[in-house]
Each structure stands twice: as C-alpha cells, then as structure tokens.
C-alpha cells in the first residue's frame, strides 16, 4: 500500500502563459502510482498544454512538473524514457506497415533484434492488430490507428502512460475494447495512467480519480464519490419526475408546495430543484392527488451532472455559458451516444 500511494506525478504551481492568455494557471496536482487519473475539461481548457509540459515539449512559464522526481523541463529525455504518450489524432507513416511503424519506435527507444520482434508480436496480439499488422498504416481506420497507437506507447514499457483524448472518434465497440485495455494496463500491469478527455461517460468507467479542469484551473479533484458528496453538500438537489397526467394543474399545485425551489418543464419531464431530499414528500403528494409516477430520478450520481454543477459553480464566462446552453438544448433530448457527438463538434 505504501508503494501504491507514492506520487509519481507532481505538479506544483504549474503555469503556462500564451500572450495574454493563461492556458494553465497555477496547477497543483499529484497522481499516485498505479492509479487511473482522468483530467476532464472542455476543449481549450489547457489539458493538452499540461500534457506537453509534462513531457517537456513545452516550457512552463512558472512552476514545476515532476515525474518520478525528475523535472520535466530539465530532463525531458529521461522523462520520455519512462512516459508513454498517446497524442490525440495519433498518426503513423502511411507507407510503412503497422509492424514497421512499431519497429521504428522500438528502435528509437534503443530496442533491437529478437527482443524487439517478440515484443512487437506480443503487443500486436494484445491490442488485437495481429491480422492487420502487415498492411500499410495508411489503410487503417481511426479505431485501428488508436489501437496501434497503444501498442506503440507500450513498446517502451512505460511506467506512466499519458493519453490525450483517447476516446475521440471511436465507435462504441472500439470504445469498450479501449476502456477494457486501459483497465487492464492499470490493474494487471500496475501502470499509472493519465487520461485527458472531455467525454465524461467513458472516463467515469475507468478512472480512479478525476480532476475537473476549466480555463487552466483545476476546480475540483477526487474520486467520483467525493465529488458527488461535495456537490450535494451545497444543498441543491435536482429531481427528474415523469408523471401521468402531466397537466398545468399539477404545475400550479407543485409551485405552492413548500421546499421546492424551482420547477422546470422539459417535454414531459419535470425538473424540480430543492434544498433537501423531497422524494418521500413528493411521492406522497402525487399519490394523494391521483397522479401516476412513471419515472423518478435524483440527478447528481453521474459524472455528467457533477461536471455541469462544477461549471455552474466556477462562475462561467460568456463563452462557457454558450457551451452550457448548447449542452442543455442539444444534449438533453438525445441519447448518450449523440451527446458525445455534440461535444466533439
């Protein structure tokens, strides 16, 4: 346990300034060995910049980033030796086969001969690319590139893996495989994994801890349960109710009830916010007046909701409010899959 709680990534007061804009603002973060950490935030929040600083590809304006005690800006080569980086939109040399691409990376990491060939075979099998390995990389689909990218990262047998938007543009089946693989890398191999993403649902499934990152600032971090608790302590509950019949008379009656702060109607669903848990009270009330409850759900349990709340709390700029608007109008009525689509756009 003591081994597991050692911090392998330590960021302190890390800042990156681009002209007037602070891409990353005094970021403090530590990631323990063997955990899967999800760095969540909308596009342009500074996630990629943070990752570039971790790899020593960009110099921080202020503050330090340490990986295994090595300063990333001063010893980038050593850091890159133990960190595997899967960039978003990973690419391969299109004229070379998948296997040749992997061999090239292996050689750059000082591997050669039989050892390298064996490792390539093993990794190709692991990511399920054995059959496509001798096709030219130019013919690969996005999902295949992503899997080859993971094999590419694993060639150097890194202790730490950093993935930038790994779930972007992958079909649901590929997504499931990818998440399984990430889980496996963490649990079986004991590697530390840092995932940056704006796609909450997938991340929710694999992350031990998440950090919510908005406009260069880490506004919250912890396990999902901790984040949820933090939100609920603010004393704001949101209840989704679907009743039959759903008429204006009901709205009128509800608005006179005590303890209800706000009632919104979205299609057939009522969104009721309150200061305390009113589920019991509401069920009784509806039952007495002859309404049938079709659906009752306390929001807040999933990351999506937590994410939204934190955005509201952070006192968002206009741009962010637009983003919120889009989310509310665009996402709610669609299914989960479509939601990811909107986000990407």
């Amino acid at each position: 346990m003591s081994e597991n709680s050692r911090n392998v990534i330590e960021l302190s007061q890390l800042t990156k300034q681009y002209g007037d804009k602070r891409a990353v603002d005094s970021l403090n973060l530590s990631i323990r060995k063997g955990e899967v950490f999800g760095l969540l935030g909308p596009n342009g929040a500074g996630k990629t910049t943070t990752i570039l600083m971790l790899l020593g590809l960009t110099e921080p304006t202020a503050g330090t980033a340490l990986i295994e005690g090595l300063d990333c800006a001063r010893h980038p080569l050593e850091v890159k030796g133990i960190v595997g980086y899967l960039p978003d939109n990973v690419g391969f040399y299109p004229d070379m086969t998948g296997r040749q691409n992997l061999r090239f990376t292996g050689q750059l990491n000082g591997l050669s001969g039989q050892e390298l060939e064996e490792r390539i075979d093993e990794l190709l099998a692991r990511v399920g690319m054995t059959e496509a390995a001798d096709r030219r990389a130019g013919t690969y689909s996005k999902g295949m590139r992503q899997r080859l990218g993971i094999a590419d990262v694993l060639i150097k047998d890194p202790e730490i893996i950093i993935m930038d938007e790994p779930t972007l543009g992958i079909d649901p089946e590929g997504m499931r495989e990818l998440l399984n693989l990430i889980r496996e890398l963490s649990v079986e191999d004991g590697r530390t994994i840092l995932i940056s993403s704006h796609q909450l649902h997938q991340i929710q499934q694999v992350c031990d801890r998440v950090g919510i990152f908005v406009e260069g600032k880490l506004i919250a971090s912890g396990t999902l349960a901790e984040l949820e608790e933090q939100i609920l302590q603010d004393g704001s509950y949101l209840l989704e109710v679907n009743v039959h019949p759903c008429d204006d008379k009901l709205l009128g009656m509800l608005s006179q009830q005590e303890g209800l702060e706000k009632i919104q109607k979205e299609g057939n669903t009522l969104l009721i916010s309150s200061k305390k848990d009113i589920r019991g009270q509401l069920t009784r009330f509806l039952g007495e007046h002859g309404y049938t409850i079709l659906h009752l759900h306390q929001r807040g349990g999933d990351l999506d909701e937590i994410y939204r709340r934190y955005f509201e709390k952070a006192g968002q700029s206009d741009e962010r409010n637009d983003f919120e608007e889009k989310r509310k109008h665009g996402w709610r009525r669609r299914g989960k899959q479509a939601r990811q689509g909107t986000d990407r756009a």
């Binding site: 590809l57 080569l77 960039p87 391969f92 040399y93 750059l108 990491n109 150097k156």
Partner: peptide
C-alpha cells in the same frame, strides 16, 4: 499534419 511528429518527439531522442 499526419500526427507522426508528436509521436516522434515523445520518444527519448533529442
């Protein structure tokens, strides 16, 4: 553009 450059610079080479 092909995304190979950032893969390349993430390797331990100068």
């Amino acid at each position: 553009a092909g995304g190979t450059l950032n893969r390349l610079v993430a390797q331990p080479i100068y």
